[in-house]
Write a protein that binds this DNA or RNA. Structure first.
Length: 269
DNA sequence: AAGGTGTACAACCGCACTCAT
DNA sequence: CATGAGTGCGGTTGTACACCT
């Protein structure tokens, strides 16, 4: 830690006796809301002082951004939003605030919580490392296409046959994309047809090192800069489905793919 | 009904960065 | 250029609540 940090922290510590922590009371919320409504946000240390709150500026900022802000949406992450999170996470990794910018009304904290409580939990259930290629490929090539299929109202409902996904996709390479768009027509297993795979467009420099792959048929024609700049609306933003991604059938498929990829990795090792 | 356990979410912490002075 | 305040971000922890036995 640098000298600045030590100094700024010691300044905070001077007031630590007066500073409240823990859950916010209704009164505190009201004080903060009224103050921001009158004076605007920013300069959070001043806000904390002037509003008569015995809170740190950081705490006020966090409370405002994650809870009190008028446009914040809480709870009920829709199916569409879940897929958006999965896709953007596959591009950018744990860049929660960046992902949150593409989900109007959602906060980085909420998305992070969603990831940790739902996605990590499922990875544990599947005995997959969430950072493993197995899990990522399973998400990309099975889970998300199936969810897209459900979302697209015009698509026909058909389920992939219970065959080895290893056979269908013997070389699931993260740098591959699929040319056959999946909007309304793909099934999870069909999406794995590696014969139609193509190389991805060049990576953005800042995304190098992340697992930079879009889900087939989801964002394959998008360039990350467009997504980042909001030039492209993700196809599922704003839906109202509360359906969970984590149903038994999808879990079975995920387990299948994880197992297949593990077998393949062991074989090649 | 009571206690244990798991889950979801709010909040905190540490660090890094920006910007004004 | 150095310093300090403010802010943003990602990781982690605490806790209320639901569910199970």
């Amino acid at each position: 830690m640098d000298v600045n940090m030590k100094k700024s922290r010691s300044a905070e510590e001077v007031n630590s006796e007066d500073t409240r922590k823990g859950p916010w009371s209704v009164e505190e919320d009201t004080l903060l809301q009224n103050y921001v409504a009158t004076h605007g946000d920013g300069r959070w240390n001043s806000v904390a002082r002037c509003a008569g709150l015995k809170r740190s500026g950081k705490s006020c900022r966090l409370r405002w951004l994650n809870y009190l802000r008028p446009d914040v949406r809480r709870g009920n992450i829709t199916l569409q939003e879940q897929i958006t999170i999965l896709d953007l996470h596959s591009r950018w990794g744990n860049r929660w605030s960046k992902i949150a910018r593409h989900l109007p009304g959602r906060t980085d904290n909420e998305i992070k919580n969603y990831w940790r409580t739902r996605v990590l939990k499922q990875a544990r259930n599947l005995k997959c490392d969430v950072d493993s290629e197995q899990f990522k490929d399973a998400l990309r090539y099975v889970w998300m296409p199936r969810l897209i299929e459900r979302i697209e109202p015009s698509s026909e409902t058909h389920h992939p046959p219970p065959v080895s996904l290893f056979e269908l996709h013997p070389n699931p390479t993260p740098s591959l994309h699929h040319q056959n768009g999946l909007h309304g027509s793909c099934s999870g297993s069909n999406a794995l047809d590696s014969s139609s795979a193509k190389l991805e467009t060049p990576l953005e420099p800042e995304d190098m090192g992340h697992n930079n792959v879009s889900v087939p048929g989801v964002c394959e024609n998008m360039n990350d800069r467009d997504v980042e700049q909001g030039n492209i609306t993700l196809p599922f933003a704003g839906g109202d489905s509360m359906e969970s991604l984590w149903d038994d059938e999808n879990l079975w498929l995920m387990q299948q793919l994880c197992d297949d990829l593990e077998i393949k990795d062991n074989f090649l090792a």
